[in-house]
Amino acid sequence: MSRTEIKIGGFGGQGVILTGFIIGKAASIFDMKNATMTQAFGPEARGSACSSQVIVSEDKIRYPYVKRPNVMVMMSQEAFNKFSPQIDPHGIMLIEEELVDPAGLPDTVTVYSIPATRIAEELGKKIVLNMVMTGFFTAVSRIISREAARKAVADSVPPGSENLNLNAFEKGYEWGLKQLEG
């Protein structure tokens, strides 16, 4: 299947949008595929359940929204509760394991989890949790290449913070590889 639908959810301020942006950029600019990103947000700037949606495809993308995500990345319980019923029954669910209890998913969904916030805190900056999540996503989902993802991260974060963010990405990536093995 050429079209892969990805939905990333969390609360405002977690970097949900940037995660989607990096995945889309990696796919479209550095992996030479097609990607469309849309986002959903309310009037509030902080704290509400928000989501970004990315479609990655070999072909031209027409219908712009995600209908039945093949991959979900959920970083808050509120987002999980709101969005998880949409998941493809054979899809994969990536969660922030200390913030999300993945109850109620069909058995056919594969769940991978990571304490992304804690890993980010250990790196000294809680706000890079989305980069940990991006690395984790890259390893587990294999939709975008590691090289493309690294380039997209370096290209999307504020100048001077590349190393910190790439470090966070690598921590997430390693965690993902371990999960795949185990």
Binding site: G42, P43, E44, A45, R46, G47, S48
Partner: peptide, 11 residues
């Protein structure tokens, strides 16, 4: 209007 809480304002 408690049925509209939480509000949208930032911390």
């Amino acid at each position: 209007r408690m049925d509209r809480i939480p509000h949208i304002w930032c911390p």
